[in-house]
Nucleic acid binder design. Sequence first.
DNA 1: TAGATTGTTAATCGATTAACAATC
DNA 2: TAGATTGTTAATCGATTAACAATC
Lengths: 221, 221
Amino acid sequence: MKKKKVKGTIKTKIDKVSDSTIRRLTLYHRSLKRMEKQNIERTTSMELAESEGIHPAKIRKDLSYFGTFGCRGVGYEVSTLKRELDHILGFNKPWGLVIIGGGQLGETLIKSQSLKENNFIINKIFEKKPDQLKITTGQTGVFSINQLEKKIDPLKDHIAIIALPHREIQPIIDRLSKLDIKGVLYIASRAVNTPKNMVVMNQDLSLSLGMMTYKVLEKRG
Amino acid sequence: MKKKKVKGTIKTKIDKVSDSTIRRLTLYHRSLKRMEKQNIERTTSMELAESEGIHPAKIRKDLSYFGTFGCRGVGYEVSTLKRELDHILGFNKPWGLVIIGGGQLGETLIKSQSLKENNFIINKIFEKKPDQLKITTGQTGVFSINQLEKKIDPLKDHIAIIALPHREIQPIIDRLSKLDIKGVLYIASRAVNTPKNMVVMNQDLSLSLGMMTYKVLEKRG
DNA sequence: TAGATTGTTAATCGATTAACAATC
DNA sequence: TAGATTGTTAATCGATTAACAATC
């Protein structure tokens, strides 16, 4: 797979890019969003670097995997670069989310401005006991987890966010993998068997807190 | 700073260990917790590797930064290795948490088994309008954010978790930095100025979702 | 003892950074 | 034009993996 570069636009096919690069692209993207809001029209790799605490050369390198978006001697146009990153990260088209087992989380995410900005829409919430859930969901439907297979439409529901206790996660992931859902993010301290046909990611507060306590101890000596 | 090794126990002083290593230690730790629950007494780097999807040599290397915990030809004793990791990551003594602006999150965390297991205790919850919050907190107090300075005791409240909208995060971090609180984890899409005297980490669902959508797109071609 | 698995060194691989020609 | 900043190559640095002596 060879690189194809198209000046001023994104490459069509790309060599495997590292996870760290992708994570940083999301950082650049959020800085650009902020700049756009502040009506800043132009920026440089040095400015972006500073606002996210990253080496400027790294930013230029990261971007270079996808094309050439800047202008020598001048820098980057904020709106253009943001749009390109929208495209690369997939924020240019809407993503349907379903929340499984996190009604409260669902309500929070429905209100979340930053998800809206990035074109994420909460389509459905699944709960063990949907009747007992007291939240304001607007027109977002709340269903029983039993109805997962009946209610999920993989054409509209692209990503599932699972917020359930430990032991309940694996079975749900197994059920989802049969539905051709594209991605699953689960919020729990748990390693799971990840089916090959979807992207499974884990967001875990305990793991982050573990890093935190290590760093605090390290700092204090 | 030179390495000191103490056979069978942890080193007293350690060369700077990379973040990736620390993150993996938390993974090993959670696998060991699971094994302990399942009454598995002994494990090997290969077994641990498999359950977290990591190269076995990497595990041995990661551990070697802190000491020698295994037995050649035999492997590792689950309970011993877990206890050592408890110690390294700081899970051997209790950490007091306060939640700022995430009452609902607070309730969830109070119930969280995995936080309890790792010796994290929710001491206080701060809300803009504590009266309007309808949650079950047990004996955990809910206070107004105005009272932050009055109610936080840095000797007991070690780590703050902030779940507030964008613009409200920086001022809170600035206020916390004056209180000698040791660590802050904020849950939002935002880069903040991090005071030197504390460890500040960011957990952001949007960033994770950005990685997710990239990977989904990459997979689909 | 023979077999297994660690701890560690050395080799490899990949990611970061420095440097600079290209060029606005 | 002179100054600035990109895009990219080359150099450096660090992390991962292979390999194996040590040893249970």
